[in-house]
């Protein structure tokens, strides 16, 4: 991510120290992850200690400190999806792409996340790929779904 763009984002919030979460979120949204030098830059620009920026960046699950895959696979493991068998779906996804939640495949094709009820319990169990919900699935459906994402 180039420095000019980071400056633009920081300026959007008037460079106020309390905008650190929003600034990081905008950067995460555009760049999909937060490189160390970006964190340092945000820390310097906003006058927030790097230790505090790191605390925030590692605290929230939305922030990634590692490069992310082209496709984000999210397995809902909310209470209702759990009750309807999401653990087996997650297991199947892990088997197929070979990574655990929070990780990214070496070819940067997929990043895997679990958790966070999205409030569509009727659709569960489900996996969400790049924001698209694949609902009421069984472990056997997973392979066909993932095939569509190159």
């Amino acid at each position: 991510m180039d420095n000019r763009r980071i400056d633009e984002i920081i300026n959007k919030y008037d460079g106020k120290p309390n905008s650190v979460i929003m600034v990081l979120m905008d950067i995460q949204h555009e760049n999909k992850w937060l490189p160390r030098e970006v964190l340092e830059k945000v820390s310097n620009k906003l006058g927030v200690p790097l230790s505090e920026v790191l605390h925030i960046a590692t605290f929230y699950k939305t922030f990634s400190l590692k490069p992310q895959g082209r496709h984000e696979v999210h397995v809902c493991t909310g209470t209702s999806c759990h009750q309807r068998g999401s653990a087996k779906i997650l297991e199947k996804v892990q088997d197929l792409i070979g990574i655990k939640p929070g990780e990214t495949t070496p070819d940067l094709r997929f990043s895997l996340e679990k958790g966070s009820c999205l409030g569509c319990c009727t659709l569960g169990p489900e996996i969400v790929v790049d924001g698209m919900h694949h609902s009421n699935i069984t472990p056997d459906d997973v392979e066909a779904i993932l095939k569509n994402y190159k």
Partner: peptide, 9 residues
């Protein structure tokens, strides 16, 4: 337009 109905589509 709820997410349970449209599922992001």
């Amino acid at each position: 337009g709820g997410i349970g109905c449209l599922g992001g589509r």
